[in-house]
Every structure is written in structure tokens, then in C-alpha cells.
Design a protein around this nucleic acid. Sequence first.
DNA 1: AACCGAAGCAACCGCCCACGA
DNA 2: ATCGTGGGCGGTTGCTTCGGT
Length: 370
Amino acid sequence: MGRSPCCDGEAGVKKGPWTPEEDKLLVDYISEKGHGSWRRLPKLAGLNRCGKSCRLRWTNYLRPDIKRGRFDDDEEKLIIHLHSILGNKWSSIATKLPGRTDNEIKNYWNTHLRKKLLGMGIDPVTHRPRTDLSLLAGLPALLAAAGSFSSGSGAGASWVENMNALRLQADAAKFQLLQGLVRALTTNTSAAAAPMAGNGGGSGVQDHLMALLGGGGNGGLAGGGFVEQQMSMLQQYDGLLSLPALTSATCNTNGAMAATMPGGQLVGGGAGMFGGSGGDSFGAGDGLSSTELGGASGSSNITAACGTTAPPPLVCNNGGSGGGGEETTPASSPMFFDGLESLNLDDHLNTDGGWKDLLEQMSWLNSTEL
DNA sequence: AACCGAAGCAACCGCCCACGA
DNA sequence: ATCGTGGGCGGTTGCTTCGGT
């Protein structure tokens, strides 16, 4: 049972922003006598505030050793590093950043660093590549919209425009997954590279990828299976992106269309499609039910009128000369695999900030017209 | 110039823990 | 062992500022 708030029963105690006069009273009193008992301080200092408010104001704002202004790069890095170790232990983190308060660090994290990590495809809670697909929340609606157009209720913009929007969003989603994948590869280079050392074959990123894929904990990611999940998701997206070319010529005039997954399943937009966490929703071989098409709009009338393009199964390439390797380049998944090749991932591994550089170069994936 | 939404941040709230009586 | 108090913590709120339209 928690104790009652310190200000309970203190009728008339002021709340809200502090005035310069109040600040001066507080600073003058503490400078002269120290804070002593925070509960008694307000009365002694002539403040109509509760002790807790005084303590907060002092520790977070008025303390003379407080360092104000923007966080520099070193501080940012340190916060991110400490957060990856300590989590939301802001006070503990603050002890490593002289002059910074826990509140300031917490605010900075929530307003800047968190978004920064998210933008880099890193989960700010786990500090690992994102595995959630929340960014796909709009896909069901887009699919539903496409369905409504196909059923004739969407006067106005053409269904082609809607589907292009859908595809662009799918690209964005894919881009996030790629970021996560590359992050996994590059940040685990040392772990991933070790098993490959001396194998004589290719030592490139695809070997790292294979080490991770096949690693199952041996040199792979701590969480195991992450990359497998990612690759499985990518396969699913490759299927989604293998929609027929979005020109009116390729579809029949009533606007009906279909999105077909490997194996011929229709791509649906129901709540269950992208729900759940990670692999359960995207395990290899998972079918996406056509019954989920349309989602909330109900009668989305997406039909298989445009033909299908099912990418071949993902196989892998040991990349080199000796290997007897498998091939990592499904022919009909150019967005992903051609992208990886053209970026020459090896050049970016083991270099300072290499993965950041890489992600920047990969940005074209998010803007390339299909 | 006015409006509006997003972002930033100071301050508050409620809970928990340590400690002494 | 129990209770009351002081202090600290993380999460949340709401006001202010900023930028876009």
C-alpha cells in the first residue's frame, strides 16, 4: 500500500509553473541552510508549495551543477548504451552523465532518441532490430480501400492509385525489415563472422546471413530465429510486391485485382494478418487467408483477375568459389536481393558507422518506383 | 494573420523502498 | 514485526512553442 501523496490535505498549495520569485526563495533558502527536510522546507522558506514540488524544482532545474542545453553526440551515445544495459533506470543513467538529471534524460529519450532508434529500425526497448510490424497498420485499410474500389463504391481516385499507395507502403514496410536485417548482420558481425573464418569460401554478408540463418544459437543472434523470421517476412513481402504491374492495361476494366502470395494464397488485409508478434504470424508456409480480405469494410471484392506472380522459394548462396553454394537471389524479388547486391554489403561491414552508411544508401528502396 | 497539429519539456502523480521509532 | 515518514523513481499530463497551411 503506497503512502498518500505528500501534498494531500495541504489546501491552497500552489501547483504549476514556478515563478522567478519562487525560484529565488527556494535557491536562497537552500544556499543558506540546505534543504533539510523537504516537507518542512516550504514553510521555512516562505513558499506556498509542497515539499515534493520544491525537491523536484531544485533537483531538476535550480541545482547549480545542472548542465543545460542540447545533449552532444557523446552524451547521446552514452545514454543509448546505458539504456541498452539498464533500461528505463533514468536515475542510474543520470549518475553517468554529470550535470544531467534523470528527468531531462528521460524527456530527451522519449522525445528524441526513441524516435531516432525507431527511424533506424531499432526497437528502443530491446535495442534490437524491430520485429514488430506495427508500421503495417495501414495495410489492411489500403487493401480494404482497394476492395471498395473494385466493388465500385470508391468514386474518385482510380483504384490504380490506391494500389500504388498500397505498394509504396509495402515498400516502406519492407524497408524497415531490411533495416532490421542489416542491423542484425552488421551489429553481430563479430559473432557471425567467427564460424565462417577459414571456410575458404565467400566471407561476405551472405555468409554472415547463412551463419545466422543456420546458426540456431551458434554465433547467431541471441534471440535465435530472428533472422529466420525476418527472411520469412521478407518472403511474404516479396510475394506482396509481386503483384502484377499496376497499369490499367494489366488489369481488367472493372478494377478487380488480386494479390497472390507464394503458393497462390490471396493476400488479405484482416486484423489477423499482421497481428501477433514475429514469427507466429509469418512463419514459413503460413498462408494468408483470402477470407480476411477487406477487413473492416466487409465486402471488399478483390478477385483474381490480374494473374499471379509467385516468387520462387528463397535459397541461399554461399557466395564463393568453393562452396557449392546455393543461390540467394530469387529472380522475381529484385527489390530486395538486387538491392543487397548493388549495395555491396561487404564494403560496409567492419567499418566505422558502416551500417548507418549502408542504410542511407538503402534509402532508395523506400523511394524507388515500382 | 490566424489557425491547427506536432513536438518539446517542466511539472505532477502515484507507487515503492529505506529507515527509524 | 509493524507503522509512519521522507525521499526517490518512472510514467504521465498538460502547457508552451514551433512549424506548416
